[in-house]
């Protein structure tokens, strides 16, 4: 099927880019491994969609496709939340830098 070909080729590309970045030292080997596992699982799901039904039934969901959908929504929510937290941390550090710069020239006076 065409959709399978398109998806599998993007996964292969993703796998290639992941390991290229790992050899370039952009991401760590552990991260690369984590992403690779994700890509491989996606590949299995695309090539053998019926495997998801087995997993889905185990969790009490009827169809494999539904299970994949539920799981991805949960995962996406989690990722978005993590990004929010990261952004919040970055913003705070930005504020710290701006504050340090703003107070740089203010003389410290002894408090009696």
């Amino acid at each position: 099927m065409l959709i399978q070909i398109v998806l599998i080729s993007s996964l292969v590309l993703a796998l290639y880019v992941t390991w290229r970045r790992a050899t370039q030292g952009v991401i760590s080997w552990r991260e690369a491994l984590g992403w690779s596992v994700l890509w491989v699982i996606a590949g299995v799901i695309i090539l053998l969609p019926q495997t998801t039904t087995t997993v889905a039934n185990f969790f009490g969901v009827g169809r494999g496709v539904d299970f994949v959908l539920y799981a991805s929504v949960v995962t996406l929510f989690f990722l978005v939340f993590k990004i929010f937290l990261t952004l919040d941390r970055v913003e705070r550090r930005l504020t710290d830098v701006v504050r340090k710069d703003a107070l740089k020239e203010l003389p410290e006076q002894k408090h009696e």
């Binding site: 701006v98 504050r99 107070l103």
Partner: peptide
Amino acid sequence: ATIIRHAINRGQGAALRTGTDAALRLG
């Protein structure tokens, strides 16, 4: 007034904190 300048906008809370730190420095 003593002026303290944030290079970029950081919000009212951030500005208050910077100003409070400045006041502490000025004794």
